[in-house]
């Protein structure tokens, strides 16, 4: 049933995009409630299924609850007064509910490395948005070339790019750091561009790989039709490939966004002093220096989580779509 949903692409090309469309449709049906296709299962088999999976759904909800409890505990704790956090578990909140915003106020007033916490929040945004956008676009250009342009050694170069996924980012830290601190790099005073560049580098192999899977599986006839219509590669890329790749760009972009936002290592190594550091840095610093002030840590942790949670909850239906293209047999 899931495969009856059509993406814009396979709707026009019929059978060709069907296989991939099926998978995407499946994701849509799974994660995105409102877009559910009409259920065409004969009624009899559906009833049978429901009966047999009753136990299954209990297990699923149990696991879901188990998965949520720790986060929920943090949320509750972050609103409890300091004295209570330090003397009783968060689950006692329900027998003795008292709510305060002091913890959040405390976090916002708190200074790490001489900077208010809000500065780190801004840093996180400054680091993350370009750190997610730049590599995705660079990778999209490259993925287009690997899919639709002809050049010498194309397939081998692509294999080489994919092979670079293997390189652990740790392997490049020291040399890159030396490079960023050398005179070649124009902006060594400000560490944030260095962080962007580092994130772009580390994201590149996977992003090219995933985007090539997606862009390469666009129906070739559409690209050819555009060429016959007189479009150059740049026009095809901008007018046709980019608009059609929005699901893939979005999903990979979201993953990259989460990864950069949640990153500690890259920022710590390349960012220089505290003034260029994201919130993860401030959190670790607080864990280290204020290990006993749990009321601050709870609120702080929640503040760092807010943006990714919003991004995640509002865009989760995009998540897997672009990642799956080409990797799923169907």
């Amino acid at each position: 049933m899931a495969s009856t949903i059509s993406t814009p692409v396979d709707a026009t090309v019929g059978a060709k995009g069907g296989a991939q469309g099926g998978v995407q449709g499946g994701v849509l049906a799974g994660v995105n409630g409102p877009n559910k296709p009409p259920d065409l299962t004969p009624r009899g088999s559906k009833i049978a299924k429901n009966l047999s999976s009753k136990k299954g759904s209990i297990i699923v909800w149990l696991i879901a609850a188990l998965w949520t409890v720790p986060t929920f505990g943090l949320l509750v704790s972050s609103f409890r007064p300091e004295t209570q956090i330090k003397t009783s578990g968060w689950w006692f909140f329900f027998s003795d509910p008292s709510v305060t915003l002091d913890n959040y106020r405390g976090v916002l007033d708190n200074k790490v490395g001489g900077q208010p916490f809000t500065e780190f929040f801004l840093n996180s945004i400054k680091i993350t948005v370009p750190g997610a956008v730049i590599p995705i676009f660079l990778a999209a250009f490259a993925a287009y070339a690997f899919s639709w342009m002809k050049f010498w050694g194309r397939d081998w170069i692509f294999v080489g790019v994919v092979a670079l996924m293997v390189v652990p980012l740790q392997m490049t830290l020291i040399p890159l750091l030396r490079f960023f601190n050398s005179d070649f790099f124009p902006d060594k005073a400000n560490g944030i561009p260095a962080i962007w560049l580092a994130h772009s580098i580390f994201a590149m192999p996977l992003a090219i790989f995933l985007l090539k899977n997606f862009i390469g599986s666009l129906p070739s006839e559409v690209i050819e039709a555009a060429r016959v219509d007189g479009a150059s590669h740049m026009v095809i890329f901008m007018r046709i490939v980019l608009p059609l790749s929005v699901p893939a760009l979005a999903s990979i972009g979201i993953f990259q966004f989460l990864w950069v936002w949640n990153d500690l290592l890259v920022a710590k190594v390349f960012g220089g002093g505290a003034k260029n550091q994201p919130m993860t840095f401030a959190m670790v610093d607080m864990v280290g220096s204020k290990g006993n002030e749990w009321q601050l840590l709870t609120a702080g942790a929640f503040v760092t989580m807010i943006v990714p949670l919003i991004v995640f909850l509002s865009l989760q239906r995009f998540f897997v779509r672009g990642l799956l293209a080409g990797s799923v047999k169907g």
């Binding site: 998965w67 949520t68 986060t71 989460l258 936002w261 949640n262 990153d263 500690l264 993860t280 959190m283 670790v284 864990v287 942790a301 760092t304 989580m305 990714p308 949670l309 991004v311 995640f312 989760q316 998540f319």
Partner: peptide
């Protein structure tokens, strides 16, 4: 899926 969005520090 929610924890995927949370940093390891968090």
């Amino acid at each position: 899926f929610l924890p995927t969005a949370i940093s390891m520090v968090g």
